[in-house]
Structure formats: C-alpha cells, structure tokens
Nucleic acid binder design. Structure first.
Lengths: 262, 262
DNA sequence: GAGTGGTCTAGACCACTCC
DNA sequence: GAGTGGTCTAGACCACTCG
C-alpha cells in the first residue's frame, strides 16, 4: 500500500487539509495500489479495521474511501465477507466532460470544433414550455450547430435556451469551440444536472446536407435537458450523431452507475 | 413530515430493524414528503440538525438518508447553504430492471416475450476470449433470440455465454420469458455488474428478416457485458432495437448518475 | 466462533454562505 | 456572526460469512 501510515497525525485529530479530503486521498492510494497490481482482480482487500490502522484514521474515514471505490465499480462488498477487488479502476468521465462535447473531445486528445448554422429567437413552442417550464408567450433562443471532430462533421446539435441563457449565448462568437466553457467563464452560468435520452433515428434532409450522409441513414439521437443547481431548466437539445462515430458507455452495478464516452 | 419522531427509541440506542435500515426509512419519508408537495421544488430542506431531532436519530444517520436522495438527484447541497429540493423523485430503475429485458417490461406493465432462433456451442472467437477472458480452445454457447413487446418483435439479441453459464442456459425452455430470472432461481447464477455501450447501426439482412424492417434502416445497438459478484465475465451480448420502439434515459449530476428506461 | 461489513451513536472542528 | 453542510473521531451492536 502507501499513504505514509505513520505520519504522526498530531494532537488536532480532525483537521481537513485544504482542498483535498483525507478519505479521497485514501481512495486514491488504494486505486493506485490496484492499478500497480498490488491487489489482483478477484482477490480480497484487507479489512476495514486493518486499513484504518495502516492509514491511521478512524474506521468511518476508511469506510468513506471504500464507498467511493465501490461507486466506481472497482470494489464489491458483502456482509460478513471481505471486500473483493473487481478490476482496474476506469477513468470515469466527469460530469462536465459528459455534458460538453468540447470538453469530452479535448480530454480524449481530439480536436473539437463547432460551427453555428443559425441562431434565432422564437416564441416558445408547447414542447419548449414543457421542457423549460416557461409561461405562455415566453421566448427561446434556438441555435443549430454542426460539431466537428478532428475536422470531420459528425453531429448536428439543435439547442433551445431559456431567455436568460439565450441572451448570453447570442453574444458568443460563432466559432467558439465550447459554449459550456464560455458560459461558465463569462456569464457564470453553470449546469449542475442533466438528463439524457438515447435512441436511433433516420437522418433527415437537413442532417443529410450538413453531415454529408444519405437521407434515412442511421443516426444516434441524444436528447438532453440541463438544469442549474437550483433545478431550473436552462436548455434542451437534440443532438444527432452519424452512426459509428461515437458511442455511449454506461457502467452499472447494484450500488451505482457511471458514465463515460468512448 | 412524518416518521413518528417521538417513537420512544428505547434504551438500546442502535438496534437495526430486520431488513430495513433506519436511514432508508428516513429517506423514504422525505421522498414521500416531497412527492406530496410538502416541500416545493426550489425550496430549502430543514437543516441536518433539525431533521436529526425530528427523527430522533444521530446526525450521521440523517446524513446517510440525505446522501441517498442526493444520489437520486432529488436534492442538491452546497457547503454553508441549506439543501435545496430539486424535484419529484424519479422511480429510478433497479439494476435488475436495467439488465433484464423481461423485468424491465414487466415493471412498466408491458408483456415481454422471447423466442429462441438458435442456440449452438462454438469455439470461442478472439472477441469472445477477450470479452469473457477465456483461454484458447474454450467453448461458448451462442444464442440468438427475438424479443417481443406486447406481441411486436422489436429486438434481436445475440448472446454468448461462458461454458459454465451456457450449460445452464441450454436447459432453459425456449419460450421462457426471462433468462435472468430463470438463471437466478434455478442455477443461482446472478449478475451483479454490467457494462453497456450504445450506438446506432443499420439493420443487417438477418435483422431485417426477423424484425420485419428494411435492410439498412436505423437501429439502436446495445452491447452489454455482465459480470458475477467476483468480477468474472459471464456473458456478452449485442442487442439491436428497431428505432423508436425504445430509448435509454440517463440522468447525471455532479455527484452521481442514475439510470432508467422510458 | 472468530472475523467482517452494515448500521448507528454522540460528539468535534472547519470551510463556506448568507444576512 | 450565526448557521450550514463536509469531514472526522472513537467507540458500539448486529447480521452475516467462512472455516
């Protein structure tokens, strides 16, 4: 293992280090130990009591660290039996990466780009009003973008923003690679929760023209609604990807679920 | 609220009731209070201290209950500020529902059915060996099934089982609606983790014939790998759904992710 | 029966938010 | 400055698993 067990925690017993929690440190240490092969897949982890002595922390702190790893699907536990090592920790996608095309692409070492096809204000349709919980006669800002990956057009994005957000989006330069990043930096608008729906559909006429595929060819459709921290819906969007350019990976266990792109 | 705060917990301070944990009870009570409109969307929940007095439990127990609700995306919290109510709790899909077509359909009040097209033993291909972590010269049991929803054929499932599981699957009656349920009940084989990948693809010749769609028409492709509790891969499968018959819903927040079908 | 994880108690200090 | 959530301590009993 690692983590300097005999670190002499000093008299002050529960000082939280600035920025990083101790339990997260411990999770990181165990994660690293698994990656380095110290714990083989299928083997058993030391007990919570033993770990709490090794890391010189209270049992509850160890429990928090192990909880983090179980959520990631790296460990599995059962009452009365020792925790078993499930496998290599995966680089789970962060929320930002999953929500933002640009941030996902960058984190994978690929070059994202975007091109705005149109951006207009419209009266909110019944669909808009339901999705964004708007009153009658509200307006929405509608943007159609083509997204490029390493220079290839692979996706059409049709987004509808509520007015407060739309007013900011309207000012964004049309070649800005990441709307999400721009909104966060300039307008302090951040998305804290999103709901995604995936299905397949045939390419429409506009899709075919913008992405250079045949009409009716298969596309992965991704509907998305994003919310502020207070649960206010900020935007909803329908993205259509050319088949075989991208896929969504979902990892689920009895305890929790994790997402990542591939 | 509810939960009979003055329930007279008695001298024994930490007796866990059989089956249900107290923190889960409390989460359920708060969930119910939100559903019944006692806490409006966007409003603030009472503080942890107050709740711990109302429910007559230690603060840690309240914290566990609130954690459950935050994972579901019902609540959001921020240091120094009170927890805000995000919205109606969703009926998050259980792991079993997400993995099993039959269980998902049943839970939605729809009638699932399955028909085995073929079931044969084959030598494991390189793909099989990688997915199931098998040695050279291992055998896999390959099954092709058509899945029906309310009488309509909507999906072709091509599954490959490692030998120990295949031997059991071979004995399952061909009209059995739920392979998962049969395996759990009869052979005590349960899946505890799965990895899913979604993308779009055109219908192949066999898909077209079995599902009565045109070749090349759009399909939602779902690759799936299932593992035992100890991390041993038990099966992998490629399912292809007719477009617009089904879609996957993923909910993700800064803290956690939840899944459900729609 | 020894050991393990799951649950729970009853406190504490700190970082942060809001007034 | 008062109050809140985030983290941590140092114990406890119970249900369960395994040898």
């Amino acid at each position: 293992m690692e983590g300097e067990p005999g670190r002499a925690v000093e008299a002050r017993p529960h000082t939280v280090r600035l920025g990083v929690a101790r339990y997260h440190d411990i999770a990181e240490a165990i994660r690293g130990a698994i990656t380095r092969g110290l714990y083989a897949r299928g083997s058993q982890l030391p007990s919570e009591r033993v770990l709490s002595e090794e890391f010189a922390v209270a049992p509850g702190t160890i429990r928090q660290a192990l909880g983090e790893l179980e959520t990631e699907g790296v460990l599995a536990s059962r009452r009365g039996s020792r925790r078993t090592v499930i496998g290599e920790p995966r680089s789970a996608v962060t929320f930002e990466e999953f929500r933002s095309f640009a941030q996902w692409a960058s984190s994978r070492g690929r070059v994202p780009a975007g091109q705005v096809i149109s951006g207009v204000w419209q009266n909110a349709s019944p669909l808009d009003r339901e999705a964004l919980r708007l009153p009658i006669a509200a307006r929405v800002f509608c943007v159609v973008r083509v997204r490029l990956l390493d220079g290839d057009a692979i996706m059409v994005e049709r987004t509808r923003y509520r007015d407060s957000v739309g007013a900011e989006v309207e000012r964004i330069p049309s070649d800005c690679p990441s709307v999400t990043a721009w909104l966060a930096a300039t307008a302090k608008i951040t998305f804290s929760r999103a709901e995604h729906q995936f299905s397949a559909c045939p390419a429409g006429a506009e899709d075919a023209r913008l992405l250079d595929v045949r009409r009716g060819s298969p596309m992965l459709m991704h509907k998305r609604m994003s919310f502020s921290r207070d649960g206010v819906p900020l935007e909803w969007s329908v993205d259509r990807y050319v088949a075989d350019t991208i896929s969504l990976v979902v990892d689920n266990s009895l305890n929790a679920n994790a997402l990542r792109w591939k």
